[in-house]
């Protein structure tokens, strides 16, 4: 009886000590693991907030986001119409204009050519009224879709949200 109780007690103690030890090691490892996550200064660059109230119709601005240039174009009615006309064409990288914008008036694009990463020229260049990449002659339309030239894909649309009527936030905020 006494020996059995003693053994049970010893088993429990071993178990409890091991469990405590494992939890302790895990807790101690956490700061080390977390140290690899983006640091505070890096996190601060995760999103870019832009006031778009000053961008007139037909104008565009270029803002830096995570070190990359982003185009924000306030599209005119013609630009929107031309982009929607493009929906019906045979496209190298098919996409509907409606899926590429949150509000039809504002087009937000990562300004990095999908061919070799050059920065395309501002709106109104190229054969489709959109953006011409000067390096190797890729023509993008007013929806940022590739229409002509060597680029394989449409200009990427970064993640963005309208914070309110005049402020746009590019990127996802990280905890």
């Amino acid at each position: 009886m006494a020996i059995e109780a003693e053994e049970n007690r010893r088993d429990f103690l071993i178990l409890a000590t091991s469990a405590f030890g494992v939890a302790g090691v895990a807790a101690a490892a956490w700061p080390f693991i977390r140290s690899w996550s983006p640091s505070a200064d890096v996190l601060a660059q995760a999103t870019t907030e832009v006031d778009i109230s000053t961008v007139q119709e037909g104008q565009m601005i270029t803002v830096p986001w995570q070190g990359k240039p982003v185009f924000i174009l306030h599209r005119t009615a013609e630009m929107i119409a031309s982009a929607q006309k493009g929906d019906k064409e045979t496209l190298p990288d098919p996409a509907q204009d409606a899926d590429r914008v949150k509000k039809p008036e504002y087009l937000v694009l990562l300004a990095v050519c999908t061919h070799l990463g050059c920065v395309p020229q501002p709106v109104g260049t190229g054969n489709y009224g959109g953006f011409l990449c000067p390096c190797h002659g890729s023509h993008y339309d007013t929806s940022g879709r590739i229409r002509q030239g060597p680029a394989p894909k449409n200009l990427e649309v970064p993640h963005y949200e309208f914070k309110d009527a005049t402020n746009l936030v590019i990127g996802k905020a990280m905890a």
Partner: peptide, 17 residues
């Protein structure tokens, strides 16, 4: 991926580690 990079792209923290 973000954890390995230590940022939103391969960058200085990635090179260092």
């Amino acid at each position: 991926v973000v954890w390995i990079w230590g940022g939103f792209a391969v960058a200085d923290p990635t090179l260092n580690r």
